[in-house]
């Protein structure tokens, strides 16, 4: 049976924790709104990029630059795992890592070589235990407050340089898609060779006619050559923004849980505290009364 003083300290420490989790939840809520806005603002660009790319790539059946057509092999896989820089956000980091790990293990079982680039420290910490040798780089975005396109472009340049250097054949991006505060979906997205959304030609036959007379300025190949790296940067950018929103969403809901748990614990402890306090008073009264009776 803990003493009254023990109980008091325990209650006050839980209260302090509750204050922290409450504050973290509110900070996450404010950041979430901003991250969500950024993710939504980036959506039109990515969508239009897809449409334009589908248009251009439609005329390049099978051929085209290496970023589109691939190297013709799929022996070496690069996994770009985007996670958060900070913890305390529920299962956010682990669910992305789990997806990446499952992919890595199944690829290795097929005899493929796996290389991993970690974006974000938390993913690196978790993957390092199992894939120490496979991790070729860790990109930290800790110092970045708001993810700008430049950050994504840099990662994309890094990946493309490795691709041009023949370091891998297929690249897949791992991140968490933001659905809602309580639902984030870990997603794997193949970025190299580029996956072209099925051209609209099948959906809208009227447009197919227009595609035939498309004019290119400069040459089609030249446009495609600069469009493809750009598309990769856009995909990375989108993944980072979705990730940022997901992270804050996950943190918000997990901190909300923590605050509620702390509240429950305080309630329980307070009952125990009151009960033992009353028991002590009763005991003292009995002692006094029985002492008086004995006289």
């Amino acid at each position: 049976m803990p003493s009254l003083k023990d109980l008091r300290t325990r209650i006050s420490s839980v209260k302090a924790t509750q204050k922290i989790t409450k504050a973290m939840q509110m900070v996450a809520a404010a950041k979430l709104r901003r991250a969500q806005m950024a993710a939504e603002a980036a959506r039109p660009y990515a969508e239009r990029m897809d449409a334009v790319l589908a248009n251009v790539a439609a005329g390049q059946a099978g051929g085209g630059p290496a970023l589109l057509a691939g190297t013709g092999k799929d022996d070496v896989h690069l996994l770009v795992v985007c996670t958060a820089e900070r913890g305390l956000c529920g299962a956010f980091n682990s669910s992305i890592v789990r997806l990446a790990r499952e992919r890595a293990v199944s690829l290795m079982a097929l005899g493929k070589t796996v290389k991993i680039i970690c974006v974000g420290k938390k993913g690196y910490d978790q993957l390092r235990r199992q894939f120490e040798k496979q991790i070729i780089e860790l990109i930290e975005l800790r110092s970045v407050r708001y993810i700008g396109f430049e950050n994504a472009a840099e990662i994309a340049r890094n990946v493309i340089a490795r691709y041009d250097g023949g370091q891998f054949d297929v690249a897949t991006l791992f991140f968490s898609r933001f659905r809602s505060v309580i639902l984030q979906i870990p997603t794997a997205l193949q970025i190299i060779p580029a996956q072209i959304p099925v051209a609209d030609a099948t959906v809208k036959p009227a447009e197919a006619k227009d595609q035939a007379v498309y004019e290119y300025e400069p040459e089609e190949n030249e446009i495609l050559a600069s469009l493809l790296p750009r598309n990769i940067a856009v995909q990375v950018f989108r993944a980072l923004l979705e990730n940022a929103a997901s992270e804050q969403g996950a943190r918000m809901s997990s901190m909300d849980n923590a605050t509620r748990n702390a509240g429950d614990m305080i309630k329980k402890q307070t009952i125990v505290y009151n009960r033992s306090r009353q028991a002590m008073i009763t005991k003292e009264l009995i002692e006094i009364i029985s002492g008086a009776e004995a006289l």
Binding site: A41, P44, Y45, R48, G148, F149, V234, F237
Partner: peptide, 12 residues
């Protein structure tokens, strides 16, 4: 006419 940059939609 749509004018978009990676960060946002500027005109539509």
């Amino acid at each position: 006419f749509d004018l978009v940059s990676p960060e946002r939609l500027l005109f539509s």
